[in-house]
Amino acid sequence: MAAPESGDGNNGAARMVTLISSDNTRFEVEAAAASLSQTLQLTILDGGGGGGDGIPLPNVDSATLSKVLEYCIKHAPAAANGGAPNATAVDRAELERFDNEFVNIDQSVLYSLIMAAHNLEIEGLQSLVAKKVADMIKGKSPMEIRRTLGFPDPTPEEQAEMNAHMLEYGWAYE
């Protein structure tokens, strides 16, 4: 027998799944939100994550996971509409406002987020963070980029390399 068409929420209530962070915190979310992750979607389609089982995520700590889920819950309705072609301008503006605010955070959190988005294959979240980091780089010199991203100051060798690089073909690339 084929599975019923809407696998989740047979009785009107949305199907919930449990995710377990690396530090053993349990998060219960709607399957639709968790399914924004390509990785989790497969497990969930196979019926995993329900009941008392929970899906362990050994690479994601609870602080990051809660942030990731905040994103997923916000974006789940639009994703369910297939990229929301019918969404109103108001809805889109609201999502955009949310996104802008969402990545207005500390760099270390951005880093954890993009790593988690990558691991969990949440395309939209990875793009959002990558775009934010790209925006942080724009309009800056190599040295300013290093400082912005909190790299240690270059060692003398590295500095020499950077200088040589700029000298050799900086004219073509400046």
């Binding site: 990558h118 990875q126 990558a130 790209a134 780089i137 724009k138 400046e174």
Partner: peptide, 23 residues
């Protein structure tokens, strides 16, 4: 691969600056 995702979003002049950031 993630760094490529970031750098791939930069216009050419910023990409050029990024090339000098580190090897």
């Amino acid at each position: 691969d993630l760094l490529a995702d970031v750098l791939g979003r930069l216009p050419p002049c910023d990409l050029a600056a990024s090339r000098c950031v580190r090897k």
